Amino acid sequence: MSTQMPVPYAESRPLPPYRALLAVDAKDFTGLPASQHGPVSQLIPELVDQALERAKLHELRDAKRFPASTGDGVVFGFDPSWLPYVLWPFLGVLDDTLGAYNRQSVGPRIRLRASIHVGPLPDAGDQGDGNGTARNDTHRLLDSRPVKAILAAASEQVTHLVSIISQRVYEDAVLGAYTGLHPDRCVEVPATVEGKAFSQRAWLYVPSPSGNLVRAGVEPREEFAEQTAESVHEERDTMAGAETHYSGNTQRVGGGAAVMGNVGRDFKYTGPSTSYRGTNQHWGGGDNVSGDKRIGESGDPR
């Protein structure tokens, strides 16, 4: 029996239920030897399930909707009521789980990108469940330039996960204060995908930012975002000539240092003078800046 194709705008029909989506994939998967592709493909969903258990989300682990392997990752839908808990604590626990695995593993390091989105998707127990615009956008976010550039720039010893949150999820769960993830831990980015007609406002959250990430800046210039993992490291020296500006809670970084989340111990940045413009800049130690402040000259350590 042939499948009947709906005619757009010819009549009204029920809206599919809203489903949240989580998608993850591994960095540099295609660069692994062919013999490791299968084991890594099996390992990634196992690590995700371990993190769900450790985050006390056993019910969510057992209630996944239309789960699928993508070869270098996994995607599944779930009830949107779980979104606040996926944002916090799950993403942080997943980062910890990856870190623990990478420290004891003799195999390839597993470093992941994750995207979180929500939207109407068919979910009636049929073969085509989970397919729709929301699913497509989830994968576009996962492949977007900012999340790839940040994971490439960060230290593989410290930063094991970089996540990107859609605007809809950010507004509903984060700004709505339903999650433990504070808005100040997120950085707004323009999510674009090379070669695709896709452009959305989104938000990056890095559970464990590293010194490399601080140096590179959490919102790279467009040229920097277009670089591959190898050229990201070569680009850093040319980025040192730009100033860093702070305005309110939004950090826009052309070069220099930007801090997101908790950064332990001390770090030293050598580069051009740095300008702070804003109010209520809160730091765990050091300066609390209100108004404009300029620190040092080019080459001075901070």
Rank of each mutant, 00 (worst) to 15 (best):
N212G: 12
P16D: 02
E222W: 09
A152R: 02
V206D: 01
D143M: 02
S115M: 04
Q36D: 09
R13W: 06
A153W: 00
F29L: 02
G291N: 07
S12P: 06
Q36F: 14
L175S: 02
E230Q: 12
G256D: 05
G77M: 09
G132T: 01
V147Q: 10
V106T: 08
V259Q: 09
Y101I: 00
V189E: 00
D62R: 14
W82S: 14
G271F: 10
L151I: 14
A197H: 13
P220D: 02
V289T: 14
R54D: 00
R277F: 13
V106H: 06
S275Q: 12
T192P: 00
N131W: 12
R221V: 01
T270L: 14
T279G: 14
V174F: 02
G107D: 04
H139R: 15
R201S: 15
V263S: 04
L32Y: 06
G285R: 06
G31C: 09
H282N: 13
S105M: 13
V86I: 10
G176Q: 04
V289I: 15
V48Y: 05
P146S: 01
S166P: 03
D292L: 15
L83I: 05
R215V: 11
A68E: 11
V162Q: 11
H58P: 06
F267Y: 07
E234M: 07
P67S: 10
V7G: 11
A124I: 14
Y205C: 11
G299C: 01
A216S: 09
H58G: 08
T192L: 02
L112V: 06
D287S: 15
E243S: 09
T30Y: 04
L15H: 09
L175I: 10
T133A: 15
T192H: 03
S105F: 08
E297H: 12
V174E: 00
G299F: 06
V40A: 03
P45A: 01
S275I: 15
C186P: 01
S166E: 08
L87D: 01
G291D: 02
H182P: 08
G71S: 05
R61S: 03
T228F: 03
E230C: 11
A258G: 14
T274C: 10
T179S: 08
R65M: 12
S290E: 10
V218H: 13
Q104N: 13
Y276W: 15
E297M: 10
I295W: 09
V86Y: 00
S199W: 04
T179C: 01
D129K: 05
